[in-house]
Design a protein around this nucleic acid. Structure first.
Length: 425
RNA sequence: GGAGAGGUGGCUGAGUGGUCGAAAGCGUCGGUUUGCUAAACCGAUGACCGGGAAACUGGUCCGCAGGUUCGAAUCCUGUCCUCUCCGCCA
């Protein structure tokens, strides 16, 4: 959510930004409603002032008749106030709803465009795409060959989009987790396992919409809880309502959680195999910073993602996400897209965003500088370290061999305990 | 799940109908003293919204939402959260 005053003072800028992002936010409506609200609020305050004066005078009234007259006066004033206040409240609610729908500002360098067609490739990873002298399999065939996954059982137990990982896939999942967590530990991240459920107001604070026809979120019946779509939700919510000492910033957390997504409306080729599933495990980076440090932190998170995938020897490219593809809270976003031989194209495996103070304002996460008056909103950033499902695709497809085996990336061998996933007779 | 206790300013904590935006202590800031630091002493010190060039001034806020009342931190109802004890359970 953007600052109310900032919106009022930069109406044209906000409108232009909404247009660049392809968001239909009613900025004019917001401005009109807010103005009306303010006007009425002034009236309420005047009525309140009069009522307060009357109330005070009652305590000092000398005779009972005088007292009763004043009481009656006070009663009338309060009635008027209540009616006016109800109007103000209604306007306030409407204004806030409109305000919450206005997306974050966009970084001036972010490519302008309405969808991912306008994403700008920045550079590629250290590892070139493998040149196979055979027809590579896609991860579904590969993993079935090695009895690493069971989609049928997943569908039987939980429906399409669910799966069982088995055998070496389980070892690979654990190895990827260990690899990522240990790499981040060295970078000063605090490792956290988070709840897989969160309150809806936390979800909303981060920028998710828990209910409604287009929701990506599973909600728990008869509660205000939802399954989280990412640990970004829980890690951001972890400090909701807190005032942090500026000296403790930046804070970097590395969260491990399951991620649940309904993937409403997402069908087609991308839904094959593990690429788009309803549940996966993810190692997530999350940072709270001072405003002046968030741009550098975004570069840091992007760099870490690159190092993780360079370390795995997985080919990738990094794209600067176009304005129309940013999502509400992000000010700037970089995606890392791994080469997926089975698809013959790059597929998103990680994403890192600078959400500036957009989430912090909704979640009320502030900082205080020692010796200075007042508080300010922190900046929040998030980035995927490794999303296991897509990470698995990238690893197994790029490391497949002519003989059908899968070489284990060197970085994972300490956790896997083997160099190759060999074809069993 | 059962039984209790409690949610007050950056923190601890007092406050049971008007004199309370709220005692006291801690912390923080300024000053005095002092080779320096510390200690001691004196003073200041909540947030948000609005009006004003400013001095200043109006309103709101004691978990949240309602209610009673001319008037609520204080009484009533609901709700969320925290803590303690008991039970159950990985």
């Amino acid at each position: 959510m953007l600052d109310r005053k900032f919106i009022l003072e930069n109406i044209e800028l906000i409108k232009k930004n909404c247009e660049n992002r392809g968001v239909k936010a009613e900025v004019d409506r917001f401005v009109a409603v807010d103005e009306q609200r303010k006007k009425l609020q002034a009236q309420v305050e005047e009525l309140n002032r009069q009522a307060n004066v009357v109330s005070k005078s009652i305590g000092q009234a000398k005779d009972p008749a005088e007292r009763d007259a004043r009481k009656e006066e006070g009663r009338k004033l309060r009635e008027q106030t209540q009616a006016a206040q109800a109007e103000v409240d209604a306007l306030g609610v409407e204004a806030e709803q409109l305000q919450r729908r206005i997306p974050n500002l966009s970084h001036p360098a972010a490519p302008v465009g309405v969808d991912d067609q306008s994403n700008l490739e920045l550079f590629r990873g250290k590892t070139p795409p493998p040149a196979f002298d055979f027809q590579p399999l896609d991860h579904v065939e590969l993993m079935k060959k090695h009895d690493m996954v069971d989609f049928e059982a997943g569908a039987q137990v939980a429906g399409h989009g669910f799966y069982f990982l088995k055998n070496d896939a389980v070892l690979l999942e654990l190895a990827l987790q260990q690899y990522a967590v240990h790499a981040l530990l060295k970078e000063g991240f605090t490792p956290i396992t988070t709840p897989d459920l969160a309150r809806n107001d936390i979800l909303e604070g981060i920028g998710f919409i828990p209910r409604g026809p287009e929701t990506q979120i599973y909600s728990i019946e008869n509660s205000d809880l939802s399954l989280v779509a990412t640990a970004e939700i829980t890690l951001g919510g972890m400090l909701a309502g807190q005032i942090l000492d500026a000296g403790t910033l930046p804070r970097k957390y590395c969260g491990i959680s399951h991620c649940f997504r309904t993937e409403a409306g997402a069908h087609g080729r991308e839904s094959r195999g593990l690429y788009r599933v309803h549940q996966f495990t993810k190692i997530e980076m999350f940072a709270f910073t001072l405003p002046e440090d968030s741009e550098a932190m975004l570069d840091h998170l992007r760099d870490l993602e690159c190092r993780l995938f360079d370390g795995l020897g997985v080919p990738y490219r990094v794209v600067d996400t176009a304005t129309g593809d940013l999502g509400g809270p992000a000010y700037r976003k970089f995606d890392l897209e791994a080469w997926m031989p089975g698809r013959g194209e790059f597929g998103e495996v990680t994403s890192t965003s600078n959400c500036t103070d957009y989430q912090a304002r909704r979640l009320d996460i502030r900082y205080r500088v020692k010796g200075e008056k007042g508080t300010h909103f922190v900046h929040t950033l998030n980035g995927t370290a490794i999303a296991i499902s897509r990470g698995l695709i990238a690893v197994v497809e790029n490391y497949q061999q002519k003989d059908g085996g899968i070489i284990v990336p060197e970085a994972l061998r300490p956790w896997m305990g083997k160099e190759k996933i060999a074809v069993s007779v």
